[in-house]
C-alpha cells in the first residue's frame, strides 16, 4: 500500500509561488479596486458621471413614467383640500366680480351725470336762491349707520366661529344659530339653487350676510344701507374674509379669540370712518351757524 503524505496545500511554499504567478493579474486588479474604493476622489471621478447620467435619464423619463401618478396625487390633494381652496378663491373671485360691477356702475354713473348735469343746474340755482348749500344737500343724502354686531358663522351647522359686538346684549351663539336657520329655511323654501340670502331687515335694523364657501359673515347694523354702501361693505367683507380664511381652516379653542381680534379691528375701522363723517358734518354745521351769525 502506498503511504499518503499529509502536507497542506495552503502552507506549501511551492504552491504559494504557483498561486502568486497564476493570480498575479487578478491580485493587481483587486488592489486597484481597493485603492479606488478607499480613495474618495478616485471613487467620485468614476461614480459621479454615472449618477449624473442616470439623473439626466430620470429627468427626461420622469414626466413620461410618473405623469399618471402625479396627476393622481394632484387630484387627490385638490379633492382633500377643496374646502380650503374654495375659501381662498371666494374672496378673490368676489373681488373680481365686485370690481367689474363697480366699473360698470361707474360707466353708468358717468353717463347719467352728463345727462343730469343740465337738468340739475336749474335745481342748484333754485337751492342757492333759497340759501341751501350743495354740500348740505349731499350730506343730507347720507344715512347714519352704525355696525352693532358682527358674526362669523360656520355654514350649515350654524355654529359660531367668532363674534364682536358693540353692546354684548344678545347671546351670539343663539343669534348665529337662528340666522343660519332662517338662511337655510329661505334658501330651501324658495329652492333658488346656489343663491344666498343676503339681507334680513327688521324696521331700522338690517343684517347683511356675506356667504363664503364654508362660513358666512353676518353684520348687524342700525340703519339701512344704500346700494353703494352695500357695495363698499361687501368689498370690506371680502377683505376681512381673506384675513380670517387661514383661521377658519383649523378651528380649535383659540380660533374664537383670534377671529374676535380681527372683527374688533374691523369694528374700529368702521367707527373711524363714521367719526370722520360725523366730524365733517359737525364742522360743516358749525361753519353754517357761524355764517348765519
Amino acid at each position: 500500500m502506498t503511504k499518503r503524505t499529509n502536507i497542506s496545500i495552503d502552507s506549501d511554499p511551492a504552491m504559494e509561488k504557483v498561486r502568486a504567478i497564476i493570480m498575479q493579474k487578478e491580485r493587481a486588479e483587486i488592489e486597484e479596486l481597493h485603492y479606488i474604493l478607499d480613495n474618495q476622489e478616485e471613487l467620485s471621478t468614476r461614480v459621479i458621471p454615472i449618477i449624473e447620467g442616470e439623473l439626466e435619464f430620470f429627468k427626461k423619463q420622469f414626466p413620461k413614467e410618473f405623469e399618471h401618478v402625479i396627476h393622481k396625487l394632484i387630484d387627490h390633494r385638490i379633492k382633500e383640500s377643496q374646502d380650503s381652496i374654495l375659501d381662498v378663491m371666494y374672496p378673490m373671485v368676489g373681488k373680481m366680480v365686485q370690481k367689474y360691477v363697480n366699473q360698470q356702475f361707474q360707466l353708468i354713473r358717468d353717463r347719467l351725470d352728463n345727462q343730469v348735469e343740465r337738468s340739475s343746474i336749474l335745481s342748484r340755482l333754485f337751492n342757492r336762491a333759497k340759501g341751501i348749500k350743495e354740500s348740505d344737500v349731499q350730506l343730507s343724502e347720507l344715512h347714519d349707520i352704525s355696525i352693532e354686531e358682527i358674526y362669523v358663522i360656520q355654514k350649515n351647522s350654524g355654529l359660531l366661529i367668532g363674534s364682536a359686538s358693540r353692546n354684548e346684549t344678545v347671546d351670539p351663539d343663539s343669534v348665529a344659530g337662528m340666522l343660519t336657520a332662517i338662511k337655510l329655511f329661505v334658501e330651501d323654501a324658495f329652492r333658488q339653487g346656489e343663491q344666498n340670502l343676503e339681507v334680513i331687515q327688521y324696521e331700522t335694523y338690517e343684517i347683511f350676510l356675506q356667504t363664503f364657501h364654508t362660513y358666512s359673515i353676518a353684520v348687524a347694523m342700525n340703519g339701512a344701507l344704500s346700494t353703494s354702501q352695500k357695495v363698499k361693505l361687501r368689498e370690506d367683507l371680502f377683505k376681512l374674509g381673506e384675513e380670517i380664511n387661514p383661521l377658519v381652516q383649523q378651528i380649535d379653542e383659540t380660533t374664537n379669540g383670534k377671529i374676535r381680534e380681527k372683527l374688533e379691528l374691523f369694528f374700529m375701522s368702521a367707527l373711524q370712518k363714521q367719526e370722520k363723517y360725523l366730524s365733517r358734518r359737525e364742522l360743516h354745521l358749525l361753519s353754517k351757524n357761524t355764517n348765519k351769525k
Binding site: 350654524g158 355654529l159 347671546d171 351663539d173 343663539s174 344659530g177 337662528m178
Partner: peptide, 23 residues
C-alpha cells in the same frame, strides 16, 4: 314654525364643558 335655536353649556363626566347648540 320653522326652527328655534338656543344653546346650553353642559359639564361632562370628565369635568370638561361642551356647548350644545340645540335646534
Amino acid at each position: 314654525i320653522g326652527v328655534k335655536v338656543d344653546s346650553k353649556v353642559v359639564s361632562l363626566d370628565n369635568d370638561d364643558q361642551l356647548k350644545l347648540m340645540i335646534w
